[in-house]
Amino acid sequence: MHELSLVHSLLELIDEQAAEHGFSRVNLVKLSCGRISGVEPQALKFAFSNTIPGTLCAGARLELDILPLKIHCFDCDREIYSNNADPTTCPDCGGSRVMVCSGFEELQLVELDVD
């Protein structure tokens, strides 16, 4: 719901990087976030493409790497990567004696390709 404000924060961060590294054009922006971080990829891409005209990022591509949801299932007694959006159910045995190990990582700027 606040992907637009995430994009504004992202563009500020890129402006800081531009001042530090002295570039004037961004070709590619690589981001990452956890599977259940709450970031909605489609909304983020839409907000990005609508915000970048007239900025350093005009025409830039956005890549979003979604980090997997990993849970520990106490019944299977192992860690399992899950494509299931529900982090409280084991994708293998369907059991609910689980613990979330990762997937909440917040949105990060990982890499820029610039001129």
């Binding site: 992202l10 961060l13 990087q17 990060q108 700027l109 890499e111 820029l112």
Partner: peptide
């Protein structure tokens, strides 16, 4: 040119 950054987007609000 590639620049590795690795910064949280929400750092400013944080």
């Amino acid at each position: 040119m590639q620049i590795k950054v690795v910064k949280n987007i929400l750092d400013a609000s944080r």
